[in-house]
Amino acid sequence: MSVPRLLDAGEAALVVEFGNTVDPTLNDRVLALDEALAADPPQGLRERVPTYRSLMLHYDPLVLDRARLVDHVLRLTGSAAARTGAATLWTLPCCYDAPHGEDVAELAGRAGLSAEAVVAQHAAATYRVYMYGFAPGFAYLGGLPEDLAVARRASPRPPHPRNAVVVGGGLAAVATVPMPTGWYVVGATPSRLYAPERAESFFVEAGDAIRFEPVDAATFDALVTREASGEPVARRGLAT
């Protein structure tokens, strides 16, 4: 297996780069090192940020010398080629109906499909959580059916509501924080991938899998209430 490239991002961050494509095998190597460092962290390592194809390590260079960090990383990449922890499959309720699936018709037009086919294909797929980025709890999901892989809009649409389920550029995402976006809003989930006041503010880890289970608007509203009361509506494992 190839040795990762080590790139400095200033004197307090090191990028361990395994490749430069969006690929599950590559992402597994990133997550294997992430896991190994979580189990055996050198003193002075502050944060680990997994991405599609690299792991960024933020460190305190007054505590952890770069050379020592590099030795530690190379030792672990030599021994920890595969992930040992099991990825969790999460089922998130998703309402594709009005008023939540704002852009389903537009996306259907772009993809040359019916609105029903867009929803059916989106809900049938199992997605891989590659990484977080962009905003708190914004999860980038791979595994979007090819028929739904349309380019993002050239100019952003107005801000979407919280916890929008979006697609764009061949990827899917859950967009937790309202923002203008070039992605297409196909629905909304009552599940909060990010809830700062919750004891476990984030519960989905990079490497986990996600499926979306269609619910109607009335069920969505009921689930929002349940989620707000502190009872999580995301379920571990497949929908029953």
């Binding site: 991002a9 961050a13 991405t51 960024m56």
Partner: peptide, 11 residues
């Protein structure tokens, strides 16, 4: 364009 990776403050 690169495939997204981490961003440090000051990048």
């Amino acid at each position: 364009d690169i495939v997204s990776d981490g961003v440090a403050m000051g990048a």
